[in-house]
């Protein structure tokens, strides 16, 4: 068993609610992720998935608990650049070309400019955007923008990639292509990935392990190992084991939603 690269211990986050009483967004998260593992977090919207990624990345502090990367406890935004964040909206700077958007995280890090540019080019190539280096975000399709978003996170060469529903805003066809692309890129880079999604099939297709979140306050309801061999393509979706796992997960999430007061409360 490979050693764990990321450990979340008793992580929780609460904020002051409307009437001043504490509002728990998620609580009691204990998760251990192996180096190179692809873990998906699925749960109904509003269950605190984005907030948890932000806490893991140090953008906001946890209320309790620890985040340990490679044996070292993390706090705030100090320290090394260990994680790349892939944002739900692509968060590309409209005044920068693809290349310069990818360069953003590489500037001012003691790399010489041509070295940094080579690195940025390399990751744009990897995500399939060779030839689009000088395009501005508004000249790119939604799928291409997410590719730049991914290249930017990869270019800082982080140990861990945090991805927040990166394909949620894409049309179904583009989304399927992007899922296959991510499988390819992941197998080429061997990154550890924490992938947040509300789409069950997406989680199963991509992951080694799927973690199901409960509805408010979010906490880990159950974990599943995905029993499908790699490399995978769209055909695994008709595999018996895929369909079984999908049904199991769907029932679980349905229960969560019912417990929360039905679909209308989502």
């Amino acid at each position: 068993m490979a050693p764990s690269i990321l450990e979340l211990k008793n992580l929780s986050r609460e904020v002051k609610g409307r009437n001043g009483e504490p509002f728990v967004i998620f609580r009691d998260i204990n998760l251990s992720v192996r180096d190179g593992e692809f873990v998906s977090i699925v749960g109904p919207s509003g269950c605190g998935k984005t907030t948890m990624l932000r806490v893991i990345n140090g953008l906001i502090p946890p209320s309790t608990g620890q985040i340990v990367v490679d044996g070292r406890e993390q706090s705030g935004t100090g320290g090394d650049l260990l994680m790349g964040f892939v944002f739900q909206g692509a968060a590309l700077l409209p005044w920068r070309t693809s290349l310069n958007n990818v360069l953003l995280g590489l500037e001012g890090r003691g790399k010489n400019p041509s070295e940094a540019r080579d690195l940025a080019r390399k990751y744009l190539d990897l995500v399939g955007l060779a030839g689009f280096e000088q395009h501005y975000p508004h000249e790119l399709s939604g799928g291409m923008q997410q590719r730049v978003n991914l290249a930017r996170a990869l270019a800082i060469e982080p140990k861990i990639l945090l991805m927040d529903e990166p394909f949620a805003a894409l049309d179904a066809q583009t989304r399927s292509f992007m899922q296959l692309e991510l499988l390819r890129i992941w197998s080429q880079t061997k990154k550890t990935v924490i992938f947040v999604t509300h789409m069950i099939a997406e989680a199963i297709l991509l992951s080694d392990r799927v973690v199901v979140f409960s509805h408010r306050p979010g906490t880990i309801r159950e974990e599943f190992r995905v029993p499908l061999p790699r490399p995978r393509d769209m055909e695994v979706k008709s595999d018996r084991r895929f369909v079984d796992l999908e049904n199991t997960l769907w029932k679980l999430i349905e229960e969560e939603v019912k417990a929360a007061g039905g679909f209308a409360r989502l």
Binding site: T77, G84, F85, F87, A91, L104, I156
Partner: peptide
Amino acid sequence: EFVELARSLR
């Protein structure tokens, strides 16, 4: 989100 991006990239 741009400010979060900057913080994420340290």
